[in-house]
């Protein structure tokens, strides 16, 4: 698969503090905020029915199941991480067309959400929350 460029954010999981208290360990039952993991919008039919990347015009979004590894590079920092799927998300259809940029690189559409550990390992700030990334199969 050729790498795709998309917008990334972060989410918490693992019954941690605050509003994360009821988040559970994600659709895969393995998700923890401190682990190198991510959410993917097409982990099952039920998942795809909720995230609906096709409503943003993204067709052919690959079905990838729990544990599948993606390598992600940040054009902002040049850093690369490898993370595995631990949840279903993000809800791509709520953010169609939203764009974030870094230097000369911009990306639209939310197709990946990282745990705080993974998002910050890319050298990205949790307080800015959104960033373009390029995603590939690890």
């Amino acid at each position: 698969m050729a790498g795709i460029t998309a917008e990334a954010s972060w989410f918490c999981c693992g019954n941690a503090w605050g509003p994360c208290g009821s988040a559970g360990h994600g659709a895969c039952g393995t998700c923890n905020s401190g682990s190198m993991q991510h959410a993917w919008p097409n982990t099952s039919d039920a998942c795809y029915a909720i995230t609906r990347p096709d409503s943003c015009g993204i067709t052919g979004m690959s079905r990838r199941t729990c544990g599948f590894r993606h390598a992600t590079t940040s054009p902002c920092t040049g850093k690369r991480i490898v993370t595995s799927i631990a949840d279903c998300g993000p809800q791509t259809d709520l953010f169609c067309g939203e764009r974030s940029c870094c230097g000369g690189n911009c990306a639209s559409n939310r197709v990946i959400d990282f745990t705080p550990a993974a998002f910050s390992a890319l050298g990205l700030s949790l307080s800015s929350g959104l960033s373009p990334v390029s995603i590939d199969v690890a």
């Binding site: 941690a16 503090w17 393995t30 682990s35 190198m36 993991q37 631990a86 705080p116 550990a117 390992a121």
Partner: peptide, 19 residues
Amino acid sequence: FAAQTPDAGQPDPNFAEGV
């Protein structure tokens, strides 16, 4: 940042989460 990158799916030793 040549420091060892943690394995996919595993906790990152250079990161902490909690109360």
